[in-house]
């Protein structure tokens, strides 16, 4: 099985739409992972039928037993994340800030602090027309997104079986969730757009992807909105030896397709043509039919 992640650095470059297009263009048996667990959108494209729902437990969270607490303040003093506060004559843990390190349990003289499991989201396994999909929903405001990404990927790997291709829709950014997405992939497709910030973020995400020894491809979405910047992106990719496999024109049909909840590749339009050409290049580079 080949594994490809669609990532972007900058948000909103059209990552999910391109993932959706790959899903309709790739032949053979597919399996999907929506690794953008902060704002999972793949489900809007596929209308998945949810088969299983599991609670997601992230890092443990500290808890203070008020009956045992003697208010010495050690926990507050040693917590480096500002997660312990003193209000209304008592110490309490702010679960949003707690990173689960357990230092407070080390320094508490009365064992009033302990680590507890917490539910930070849900993991879904669903059926779609194009193959199984693992996705998740993070409780807004929860940390450990990277771990949830790893969990989603685990679900997908468990059931990937003899399928031919795993397609992951990645998160924006270059931090922990992105790193968790790229880990274990064969290739990444970076979707960028012709803007100064698009190019800036592309360079940053390439630097991170290089650490993983994956094949890197670039697609320039809406390339004709500013061709001078698109040319700079092409130049950068050439210098870096990264193939630009897709040049997708700005095309109002794309938004129409999203609004009708249909893959853009079902339309006869310039963007769909460009996406088909892109997939052929990726498929041959991955050694697939």
């Amino acid at each position: 099985m080949k594994r490809i992640a669609v990532i972007s650095g900058k948000g909103g470059t059209g990552k999910t739409i391109i993932t959706g297009a790959l899903a309709t263009l790739a032949k053979g048996d597919l399996v999907f992972a929506d690794c953008d667990v902060d704002a999972a959108n793949l489900e809007l494209l596929f209308e998945p039928e949810i088969e299983t729902t599991e609670p997601y437990r992230g890092l443990q969270v500290a808890d203070i037993d008020q009956d045992l607490c003697i208010q010495c303040g050690n926990c507050e003093e040693y917590c480096r994340f500002g997660a312990i506060r003193y209000t209304d004559d008592r110490f309490f843990v702010d679960p949003v800030k707690c990173e689960g390190c357990a230092v407070c349990t080390l320094v508490c003289p009365t064992n009033a602090t302990s680590m507890k499991d917490r539910e930070s989201g849900k993991i879904f396994y669903s059926r779609t027309d194009r193959g199984p999909l693992a996705h998740a929903r993070l409780e807004p405001g929860s940390g450990t997104t990277g771990l949830l990404v790893s969990e989603v990927k685990k679900r997908v790997n468990e059931r990937a079986g003899d399928r031919d291709l795993l397609i992951a829709d990645g998160p924006p950014g270059i931090g922990c969730p992105l790193i968790a997405t790229v880990t274990g992939m064969d290739a990444v497709l970076i979707v960028t757009e012709p803007s100064t910030s698009g190019l800036h973020d592309l360079k940053r995400v390439v630097k991170v992807a290089r650490n993983f020894g994956v094949d890197i491809f670039v697609a320039i979405n809406k390339y004709n909105l500013e061709e001078s910047v698109a040319a700079r992106i092409e130049e950068y990719c050439e210098d870096e030896g990264i193939p630009v496999v897709g040049r997708i024109p700005f095309d109002p049909t794309v938004i129409e397709a999203i609004r009708s909840r249909k893959p853009v590749t079902e339309y006869d339009c310039p963007a769909a043509d460009a996406l088909r050409a892109m997939w052929e290049r990726i498929a041959s580079a991955l050694g697939r039919e």
Binding site: A39, G141, T145, P177
Partner: peptide, 9 residues
């Protein structure tokens, strides 16, 4: 930053 996770909070 975009999203709903810890950096946003």
């Amino acid at each position: 930053s975009p999203g709903t996770a810890c950096p946003v909070i």
